[in-house]
Amino acid sequence: MPQSKPDEPFVRKVFKALVLVVGAAMFLSFSFGPILQALGPSDSQDTANLVTEQLRAQADGYRAVLEREPDNPIALRGLIDTQLQLNEPQGAIEPLKKLVELEPENRQLRAFLAQIQQDTGDLEGALEQLQILHEKDPKDSQVLQELADVQLALGRPSQAIELLENYLKEVPEDNDVRLRLAFIYVRNNQTEKAVALYDEMIAADPSDFAPVLGKAIALTSATDENLRAKAPELFEQAARLAPPKVREEIRQQAKLYAQRNQP
């Protein structure tokens, strides 16, 4: 007598049903949250493995298309998407570069490539993309700050400072960039410059907690003991000015800096 076929795991039945109902193309956008909560740990892992297999199969399909049509934007975007869903950002870089070549004026795409390169440790590659974006639009402060951050991460604080200082000569009212510049001054042991910049911002808007907090942090690294002694009061002032949800965090930071500066 032939043996009966083992029952198919419930989660595999669910998987097949979903593919049939919503279609293979839409399946990956379906939310598994409620289902995973209803299933046990082993079933949840089984579902995760099946989704991973599906994503890898899709990635292989996109690669096959790109072998025949290397400039196919749909396949390029599909491969990028599957690599990111697989949490394999390194595999998204080459198709992203190709897509940027095909759409050189797409700033969002180039900025996304720069972000992925930063996340995967390719700081020089990110720097190249950000410099292109900055040259095409020097007034884009978000790109400017990211460019300064990459320069700082590469151990080039003087280039980051020069970049921000030059921008502020043209747009002196940009407080986000002023805060970033003051922060880099502190990182570069230029405490006096940082404090002077924070004082300008505090005078312009005494209700803004950010420059008060920045000044407090800057003073914790001052060589003058009298200046360091002013930091606790500034931390408390910043906490009072800050939104309620961040006040406790500021006070915790104040305690950490106080402990660090104990003799």
Rank of each mutant, 00 (worst) to 15 (best):
M1Q: 09
Q3E: 15
P6S: 10
D7C: 11
E8R: 14
F10V: 14
L18Y: 06
V19I: 15
L20P: 02
G23H: 05
A25G: 10
M26N: 15
M26Q: 15
S29I: 06
F30T: 04
P34L: 07
I35L: 11
L36C: 11
L50Q: 10
V51E: 06
Q54P: 02
D60N: 14
Y62V: 01
Y62Q: 02
R63I: 14
A64N: 12
R68Q: 14
R68I: 10
E69R: 08
D71A: 13
N72S: 07
P73G: 07
I74E: 15
I74S: 12
A75T: 03
R77S: 13
R77W: 11
G78F: 05
L79F: 05
L79S: 08
I80Y: 06
T82P: 08
T82A: 11
L84G: 04
L84H: 03
N87K: 13
N87E: 07
I93E: 05
E94L: 05
L96Y: 04
K97H: 11
K98H: 12
V100F: 01
L102F: 11
L102V: 08
P104Y: 12
E105S: 12
R107I: 06
L109V: 02
R110A: 02
R110E: 00
F112E: 11
Q115K: 05
Q118M: 15
Q118S: 13
T120G: 02
T120F: 05
E124D: 11
G125C: 05
G125M: 03
L127S: 02
L127I: 07
L127H: 08
E128N: 07
Q129V: 08
L130E: 02
E135P: 00
K136C: 05
V143C: 00
E146M: 14
V150I: 10
V150T: 04
L152R: 14
S158Y: 11
A160P: 10
A160K: 03
E162F: 03
L168A: 06
L168I: 02
V177C: 09
L181P: 00
N188E: 07
N188V: 04
N189W: 05
E192V: 07
K193D: 03
K193V: 00
V195G: 01
D199I: 01
A203E: 09
A204D: 03
A204V: 04
D205C: 03
P206F: 08
D208I: 04
F209L: 00
L213T: 02
A216F: 00
A218G: 02
T220Q: 11
E225K: 15
N226L: 10
A229S: 15
A229R: 13
P232R: 08
L234A: 03
F235S: 02
E236N: 04
A239M: 03
A239P: 02
L241H: 07
R247A: 09
E248R: 14
I250F: 01
Q253P: 01
K255I: 12
L256K: 15
Y257A: 09
N261R: 13
Q262G: 11
